[in-house]
Design a protein around this nucleic acid. Structure first.
Length: 488
RNA sequence: GGCCCCGUCGUCUAGUCUGGCCUAGGACACCAGGUUUUCAUCCUGGCGACAGGGGUUCGAAUCCCCUCGGGGUCACCA
């Protein structure tokens, strides 16, 4: 058990699930699942002010929805708990004490005013801003005396001279000069430990063997590696995943559009499509195949194949992929997925749709190939819910209808002919109508374009005769009658 | 600016470790044509990249160096 591979994700419960977190979670999950390892969820709630219970629940619920199951976590426990960092504070204090005793850490009495002065001076002199190590060599008697007298202090890590290197499975080995590393704060004046400190404590205590995370953490890594050494623990193996980028090649942020998992879930992207697309953010199956399932991902995923360069998040391709999955869904399944969106737009009551489920299934079958995400259905079928004399004519549809001089007469004649020539079969109805047109010496569009406009108000769409069946004879005739007037 | 990472079509990528099979493959987007009552789907075709410069080599997208470019990070946030 202690030899087995253990990975984790450690989100801070300060908001919704960002796509980057979802991707990191997916890669960690797949890495564990493909190698008989364990996947751990730990909540990084060290920022007391920003962490919320709601966010915590949202993260857990969102990851569950994705289908990424973890073996240990705050809500299901495990042998290495607790899994909420704030609940591990005693252990953190204990480790700080040890580090102070072994001389790896020291108390810093500098005020925030002094620190900002130092920083400003350094910036003015064009130097890299960092702590000037003012308190680093303070005699311990003096430090103890100041602590005893109640002076506020933070605890800093004493960075030793030399170099720090670590193994990164994505970018080979990375080396830093220790002289470039700041004596960073491990414990704030408030007594709360900082992220860089607790993440190491917890990963070490939880026997985490591989740390897969976003590249923004790359420069934190030497600090952490040094801390592992000070703690006398082997550092895990790292893997820094390429960043998800927005249009401007900068880290994907709110202004790039939807960046939360829930944005896509709420827009009706099929779950499998979201997962599949996340797989492609920094990894490719074979360079040929874009559509593949999670089992395939788990089977083939390897950190050695993760790309190094950040990748712009391609919203167009995401939408295309969503369509690939949506089109494969069985009508019955798709109907269930679309239902909340149709109801949400106020087109029909759920009870109403359930009462004529077969009818709804026919709508689904008809519109399926024209939508890529569930939320696109309502707009496509809104005409079905409209009043017969108030169907909204889109400009493009009306323009197409008005191209035909005889439109009103054609519709009027068709209106008279239709009741006598109704068929239960849409294709028979179509054939009969075409024959009628041939007889009159008219081309197909001369009737079909005005007719489509009258029936749906849309410039394009499914087979007209299927639509007539969906509307029923009375509504069909009503709409044609209305069309004669409105298109006159 | 310092440090670190990265650099193949507009975008995502395969190929790079183990030089030759690469006149660089696939996908999205875009354009054109075909099918269709329209739209969509589908099919066919097109456009389109090894950042630049030096080496090493019989041979380099692949190895080395430099330049340029992009990003990340420089908090008592995570």
């Amino acid at each position: 058990m202690s030899n087995s591979l253990r990975v984790r994700i450690a989100p801070s419960p300060t908001g919704a699930i960002h796509l980057g977190l979802a991707r990191t979670a997916l890669f960690n999950w797949a890495y564990a699942r493909g190698r008989e390892g364990q996947f751990v969820l730990r909540l990084e709630d060290t920022d007391r002010a920003r962490s919320t219970r709601e966010s915590e629940l949202a993260i857990i619920e969102g990851l569950r929805w994705l289908g990424l199951d973890w073996d240990e976590g705050p809500e299901l426990g495990g042998d290495f708990g607790p899994y909420r960092q704030s609940e591990r504070i005693d252990r953190h204090r204990q480790l700080v004490g040890g580090l102070m005793e072994t001389g790896h850490a020291y108390a810093c009495f500098c005020t925030s005013e002094r620190l900002s002065e130092v920083r400003e001076r350094q910036q003015a002199a064009n130097e890299t801003p960092r702590y000037d190590r003012c308190c680093r060599d303070m005699p311990s008697e003096e430090a103890q005396a100041r602590v005893a007298s109640g002076d506020a202090f933070a605890i800093r890590f004493k960075v030793p001279p030399g170099q720090t290197a670590f193994q990164d499975l994505v970018r080979k080995d990375v080396t830093f000069e220790n002289s470039e590393i700041d004596d960073w704060v491990m414990v704030r004046q408030s007594g709360d430990p900082t992220y860089n400190f607790v993440v190491v404590c917890d990963d070490a205590d939880m026997d985490i063997t591989h740390v897969l995370r976003g590249e923004e953490h790359l420069v934190n890594t030497p600090k952490q590696v040094l801390l592992y050494a000070a703690l006398g623990v082997d550092a895990p193996i790292f893997a820094h995943l390429p960043l998800l980028l927005g249009k401007g090649r900068k880290k994907l942020s709110k202004r790039d559009g939807g960046v939360s998992l829930s944005d896509y879930r709420d827009q009706g992207y099929p779950r499998e499509a979201i997962l599949n697309f996340l797989c492609m953010q920094g990894w490719a199956l074979d360079g040929e195949t874009d559509v593949f399932d999670l089992a395939t991902f788990v089977e083939h995923f390897d950190l050695a194949d993760v790309s190094r360069g950040g990748a712009i998040f391609d919203f167009d391709k995401f939408l295309w992929l969503a369509g690939e999955y949506l089109h494969k869904e069985a009508d019955e399944v798709l109907a269930e997925h679309c239902l909340p969106f149709v109801v949400g737009e106020g087109l029909f009551d759920e009870a109403d749709l359930r009462a004529r489920w077969d009818w709804f299934l026919r709508v689904i079958a008809m519109e399926k190939e024209r939508i890529r995400i569930y939320s696109e259905l309502p707009a496509r079928m809104a005409y079905l819910a409209a009043q017969n004399d108030q169907v909204e004519y889109l400009p493009k549809a009306e323009k197409g209808a008005r191209k035909h001089e005889d439109r009103a007469q054609t519709l009027t004649d068709y209106l008279a002919w239709l009741p006598e020539h109704c068929s239960d079969s849409a294709s028979e109805q179509a054939e009969a109508t075409k024959a009628w047109l041939v007889e009159r010496g008219q081309k197909i569009p001369m009737l079909f374009q005005p007719l489509r406009c009258a029936l749906t108000g849309l410039p394009g769409g499914p087979d007209l005769f299927e639509i007539m069946h969906l509307l029923g004879q009375a509504a069909t005739l009503d709409r044609i009658r209305s069309g004669v007037e409105r298109l006159a």
